[in-house]
Amino acid sequence: MSMKYNRIPVTLKVNRQTKNADIRTADTLLDVLRENFGLTGSKPGCLNGDCGSCTVLIDGCPMKSCIMLGLEAAGREIVTVEGLRGSPVQRAFIENNAFQCGYCTPGFIMNIEGLIRKHPDADDAVIEEWLQSNICRCTSYQEIKAAVYAVLGKETREDHK
C-alpha cells in the first residue's frame, strides 16, 4: 500500500514577509508555521483548539493555528509571536512575572494582542471571555491579569506584594 499525499504550493504572508511552501492539504497552519517556516514560537499543546498555546493573529484576530488549515490562511495577514518586537504586552508579561515555564506564553500574548486591538477599553467580563480560551498551568492567572491590566492602563489589587 502506498500513501499519496497531495502537496500543493501555497503563499502565506507571515510577519510581514511573503513565504512560499509546498504543503499537504491536511496540514494545519501550526504545522506549516513550525515545520515549513521554523517558526516554533507557536506551540502545540492539544491540537484540537482546547489550550490556545498555538494562538496567532489572522488579520488582527486571534486564531488557534492548530484548528486552521494552512491553505485557509493564504492571502491573510498572519502574525506569530516572532512578529512582535518589544510590544507592550511582552514587556508587561516580563514586568508582572506572568509566565514561568513559558510554553503557553506566546499563545497568551497573541490572544492579548488581539484583545487590545479589538477592545482597547475591555472590561473584566470581556477580558475573561477572551482569555478563557488559553490554559496556563504554572502561574495563578493573577500575574497574567496584572499584565493585561497594565497594558490596558487598569489598576489591580496590590496587597502583600
Binding site: L131, Q132, I135, R137, S140, H160
Partner: peptide, 20 residues
C-alpha cells in the same frame, strides 16, 4: 483525556491569591 473533558481552572475562575 482531553482538556475539553478534563477541565482545569481557566482565567477568571481563580480566586484572588494572597501570599505572605
Amino acid at each position: 483525556n482531553q482538556f475539553r473533558t478534563y477541565k482545569v481552572l481557566r482565567y477568571g475562575e481563580n480566586p484572588h491569591y494572597t501570599v505572605d
